[in-house]
Amino acid sequence: MRIGIPRALLYYNYYPFWKIFFESLGHEVVLSSPTNKKILKDGLESTVDDACLPVKVFHGHVIDLINTVDAVFIPRIISVESGEFICPKFLGLPDMIRNSVAGLPRIIDCELSLYRNKTGFMEHAIRVGRLLGNSTQEALRAYLLASSKYNSYKKFRVKNGRLPIDEGDKSFFEVTAPDYSKYKDGSFKFNVLVLGHPYNIYDRYVSMNLIKKLQDFGAKIITPEIIPERNISAGAKKLNKKLFWTLGKNILGSAYYYMDNCKLDGIVHVASFGCGPDSLVGELLERKVSRDYSLPFLYLNLDEHAGEEGFNTRLEAFVDILERRRCGESNVSSHG
C-alpha cells in the first residue's frame, strides 16, 4: 500500500519512526511536498476560519497527497508523554479532515494516548499495523526495529546538533550530512535559542526561512529538539507549576535550562496565529526572560497575512540588538 504522510504538524517529531515502521511492513511511504504557496492556499480554503495556522497547513498537505496514495496516516493523538497532554486540536484532527476535505482516500486513524500508559506507544503501533492487515507479530517486529532506529536517530540529532530541517524535497531524516558545514564552531557570533512548535520553526515556508536567515547572520541555533531530554526536564522543574502540556513543557524547560546553564545571547519565540497555548507560553516566557535574565527576546507571530518584509525588519532589528551587545556601541554593519 502507498501510505501518505503529510509533511506538517508532528511530521517533524515522528516521521523517522513511521517511515521505518511502514516500510518494514512492506508498504511504501509517500511524503507530501514541502509546504508551498499552493498547499497553504488549499489549506486556508478548506478550513474553518478559527483553526490555527498549522492545522490549516496540515489540511493543505493532505490535499496534496490525495491523488498519489492509497491511504493517509492521521493518528488521533491525545498524549505523547505520561501524565501530559498535547493540544486538543490533535484529538479531532481525523474528523476535521474528513469533514472538510473531499475525495479523500482511506484515512488510517488510530488513537494514541500515553497519559496513563507508558507502553502505549507500542500498543498504538501494533493497532496501526493491524489496521493495515498485518499480524500482531509482524507489527511488533516492525515496532521494535522502528523504535530502535528512531532512538538512535534522536541521539544522533542531539549529539550533532542536527536540526530536523528538510533540504529541497528531501526529508530531514534522509539528509545525513551535517547541515551547516560552512559555519565552523567558533565562527558563530551568537547563540540563539529558537523556541516554538517544531511544525512552525522547521517548516521553511511557514517560518519564512527563519532558521536559515538567523544562521546567515552568524547565529548558532539551539532548539528543544537538540537539547537532551534530561536537561529539558531539569529546566521544567524550575517552573512554579507542573505543566501538563508536552509542548509548553519543552519550550519553557529548554528556556530555563539554557538561561541558567549555557551562554545564550538571545531568544526567539515563534508562535502561530490562532494558537491559544502559544500565547500563554509566550507571555510566561517573555515575562521571565526580560525580568529575570534581561536577555534580548523576539516574539514572532506567524500569520498567513503577514508579509515577509515586516518579518525581516523585525529579525534584522533583533540581530542589531545582539550585535550591539557583542561589540558595544560603535560598530555599524552595513546590512540589516
Binding site: G307, T313, E329
Partner: peptide, 12 residues
C-alpha cells in the same frame, strides 16, 4: 542606557 533592548512593531 542608550541601547535598544526591545521593540515591537505593528504592520497589520
Amino acid at each position: 542606557d542608550g541601547v535598544v533592548v526591545d521593540f515591537a512593531m505593528n504592520t497589520v
